[in-house]
Design a protein around this nucleic acid. Sequence first.
DNA 1: TGAACAATTGAACAGTTGTTCATATATTCT
DNA 2: AGAATATATGAACAACTGTTCAATTGTTCA
Lengths: 123, 123
Amino acid sequence: MAKKPNPIEKCDAEVIHKEIVNQVKAKMPKEEILYDLAELFKVFGDTTRIKILWALAESEMCVCDIAALLNMTQSAISHQLRILKQAKLVKNRRDGKIVYYSLDDDHVEQIFGQGLAHIYEDR
Amino acid sequence: MAKKPNPIEKCDAEVIHKEIVNQVKAKMPKEEILYDLAELFKVFGDTTRIKILWALAESEMCVCDIAALLNMTQSAISHQLRILKQAKLVKNRRDGKIVYYSLDDDHVEQIFGQGLAHIYEDR
DNA sequence: TGAACAATTGAACAGTTGTTCATATATTCT
DNA sequence: AGAATATATGAACAACTGTTCAATTGTTCA
């Protein structure tokens, strides 16, 4: 997590592989893109949020419903929904006192599918 | 992070939506699957690891090369490679003193693709 | 064998994260 | 207006994470 500039250590192999390393470097996406990508996956990297997304893939639900479904407090769910909304993965609409949340992205289910494929591959 | 059983708060809407909630509950994958899925995405949720995977998608590389490429210490890279290997995302082979790492999964690039699609969608 | 190189490992530390608790906001109903 | 319901929010705390540093392992070469 600590983001500090680090000294590189000298390494003989580095000299030998210099050309390949430079080629790879040239093909790497911009720092900003890779950062955003990591931020997105960070959102997926929590069991509670995964469960929420999976539930919303099935049906629109209110905060209170999700809390009951996952057996967690409304507050905890609300905090996580805020993170999901910031990541533009869910959207919401208000109907009276109740706020309904739903998926706001077509890629979520495909990303989950690929993730599952990886998990199931190992056996 | 603290994983404790939490009390549910009472909620009138929950009663109204009970049927839907139960249906969604019935369709949810097993706890274990969702946990593994979150664990996998957690691995993707770090800039350093994303960069390593992206680099290895381009070419096999040794620890020292990756360290030079990302301007980080060999130790830091080695720690991250261990995590990637545990997640079965990379594999390695030793040639003398040098250990070469490469991708060990077909889904990585597709998952990244979907992730990028989501990021680029927002504008 | 010993020196040098490449990589790994464990402990420690700062920074981050998710839940809880208390409180605030928003809406409805009487 | 006040009471009740539904959600949101901020502070605080424990648990977790990524990097650094120091030490270790494994390999090659003189």
